[in-house]
Design a protein around this nucleic acid. Sequence first.
DNA 1: AGGCATTTGTGCGTATGTATT
DNA 2: GAATACATACGCACAAATGCC
Lengths: 256, 256
Amino acid sequence: MVADRTAPKGAPLTGERKKARTLVDDAVQTIGRDIVWGEHSPGETLPVEAEIAADLGVGRNVVREAIKILSAKGLVRAGRGTGMVVLPRGEWNYLDPDVIQWNLDHPELRDELIDELSGLRAIIEPQVAALAATAATTVEVLRLFEAYELMANAPDKFAGIEADVLFHRRLFEACHNKMMLSLMRTVFVVLRANFDLAIEVDFVSSRYPDDHKLVAEAIHDRDPERARAIMTALLDKNIENLATMRRARSRLGQAS
Amino acid sequence: MVADRTAPKGAPLTGERKKARTLVDDAVQTIGRDIVWGEHSPGETLPVEAEIAADLGVGRNVVREAIKILSAKGLVRAGRGTGMVVLPRGEWNYLDPDVIQWNLDHPELRDELIDELSGLRAIIEPQVAALAATAATTVEVLRLFEAYELMANAPDKFAGIEADVLFHRRLFEACHNKMMLSLMRTVFVVLRANFDLAIEVDFVSSRYPDDHKLVAEAIHDRDPERARAIMTALLDKNIENLATMRRARSRLGQAS
DNA sequence: AGGCATTTGTGCGTATGTATT
DNA sequence: GAATACATACGCACAAATGCC
């Protein structure tokens, strides 16, 4: 079984997902989530196209195109006569925002993935800050301060979060490296997940405008080592707060 | 036009590409390469499905499934009625091995991408080495030395390159981080591209078994800072040799 | 080894949403 | 604003390849 896909086209879809743009997108989400959640283990073969199509109430072509997308994400490999086999987790593209999101959506996979993504941030972002200190243009430095001002003067927590994300986005952009931009999109998935958790437990001081200002100043002063050190400290605080927020969530009795 | 795809179904395809497993895979390569190479600029809409299908001598379904894969790589977005538009380069997934390979295959895009990927390595791998110094198991450390031995005692340059790649692979695996494993696959594309260039210009000392040994020893001693420093030095040498190899290639009169 | 059932690969017709006249 | 042209979205039928008996 491929999960209980109900929700025909006219249904309200109350809260489950905002809008399923096409049947293929919806099938990608359903099948992909089932795989990531372990409904189909690596090495197993998925049900045949026709069966999945019948389960989802769509045509076989929708399933095929969804599988093609999932194969691009490294989750499955299809072969004529051999069926569609789930690849081992090591082959999955864990940098793909969808794959990450499907992990975050699972209550048991979520925390481990956030830890690993926090580890990724700890590896990447200090170097990003250091690189920005040498590569950023004057305009980009100003834009960093601008984002900081937005963060410091945010009227509410949501605006503060947006400004926070904006700050980090501009930091990555200052690297002038295409691969860093792609990595940024991956990092932002967990960044927003952290914010969601912060909002859930009402943890207001999960942002550090002062540290952000210090990072911007270090970059303005063209001091890579200082930028790296401050960013490292900022991420360390982030990890600490993550533990605090998790304890708060536990006390709330983890709801859905 | 989408390039001169001939090769009907029965044709031998002698050498053009090693194996075109399916028509969809072939279409992905053709269309993807055309987009990356600038045959279709960002913002433009691709020819309609039927036209591409006719150009490639395939059915529309093949084109559709290829487009789905390319959309998963962030190159295009398809919309009913709006056509298939090429997304701006900033949206492309530059961590995808195919996207990287298409860049490497273009003589003018190649060098810039190698530079950026070398920059990515410079950001990632020193931290990977440092992380491995704290996270690697005893067995993994032994495996690192084993890879070094293979590299030092390689009977020919090809075996040495394989051992070199193996060393870095085991380094990444010692991080115990799924995202790092995905990043590794990206990094390896350019690693092998560097080796191809080294072979092309017969640059034999492009590997540094001694430095690799020092990295392994630092990890064995659980000394993250030393591991990071040596890896940084190793990558610096790599970048220097890259410049040397490019000059050698220029002297050879850059052939195809 | 050969035939057969099964499964994905491929081609084309129809439905539906989008933009333009 | 409604009709219309057009492009993708979707579904069905056939072909080819793999594995099993």
